[in-house]
């Protein structure tokens, strides 16, 4: 095993970065997905409703992405990131992933003419992680079901998503686009702070607001 890691380190040595970090994070994401798939298979099934949610969510994401304030070198503050948290929490990880992927790719293609694939995956992974909270059946903001522990979970998953997404974007930028590592780190650190800020200040509170609104509408109790 150490030989393999050493080999990988050598082959990517000229980039000043070891690819095993990216590999470990990728493995981590895969393991999480496999565990969830084992317990909640239904989470990965796409109903008609979630398909429409992906479509409208992606349209929203692409439309709101036009509100962007540059905060770093080719990096901007985007309020649209909050949508990933909201759609992930409302409809689950698959919808979150697809909203991020399709929305970001559409916005890139239509506003700028070229798609920056590694950052498309950054958005997609933020959405994916935002949906993991939905694994708990007691969590459903559309029916007004939200407990305190879910809020803590959402913040935890948001924190983890920032790391996973950063590593994916980093790997893509450095290995595919051939950007120097130092510059990419600068961009990623700026983007991570702004993204986490948006998720923590706008995204998660919006989910809580929606859940509370739906709670007051709900006067029927589901029987087991």
């Amino acid at each position: 095993m150490s030989d393999i890691i050493q080999n990988l380190k050598d082959s990517f040595g000229s980039y000043g970065f070891s690819s095993w970090q990216a590999l470990v994070s990728l493995l981590f994401v895969v393991v999480v997905i496999v565990i969830i798939a084992k317990y909640r298979k239904d989470i990965f099934e796409l109903s008609t409703r979630s398909i429409v949610a992906v479509g409208i969510g992606a349209a929203l994401y692409a439309a709101i992405s036009f509100i962007a304030i540059p905060i770093g070198p080719n990096t901007s503050f985007r309020i649209a990131i909050a949508l990933l948290t909201i759609f992930g929490a409302l409809f689950g990880p698959v919808v979150g992933f697809l909203v991020g992927f399709i929305g970001h790719a559409l916005n890139d293609a239509m506003a700028w003419g070229s798609v920056w694939w590694s950052w498309v995956f950054l958005s997609a992974i933020l959405g994916l992680f935002a949906g993991f909270v939905k694994v708990d059946k007691k969590f459903n903001p559309l029916k007004g079901l939200l407990e305190k522990k879910h809020i803590v979970q959402m913040y935890l998953f948001a924190f983890m998503s920032i790391f996973a997404a950063s590593l994916v974007a980093y790997a893509g930028d450095v290995f595919l686009y051939g950007e120097p590592a130092g510059k990419v780190w600068l961009q990623i650190i700026i983007a991570s702070f702004s993204n986490f800020g948006v998720i923590a200040v706008v995204g998660i509170p919006a989910v809580i607001v929606l859940a509370n609104m739906n709670k007051s509408k709900q006067n029927l109790v589901e029987e087991e």
Partner: peptide, 21 residues
């Protein structure tokens, strides 16, 4: 085809969503 249709819906609703916004 479901995912492909979602892309189609996204294309269709971008102008509507912008107008709403």
């Amino acid at each position: 085809y479901k995912v492909a249709y979602a892309v189609s819906i996204a294309f269709r609703y971008i102008p509507d969503v912008k107008e709403e916004m």
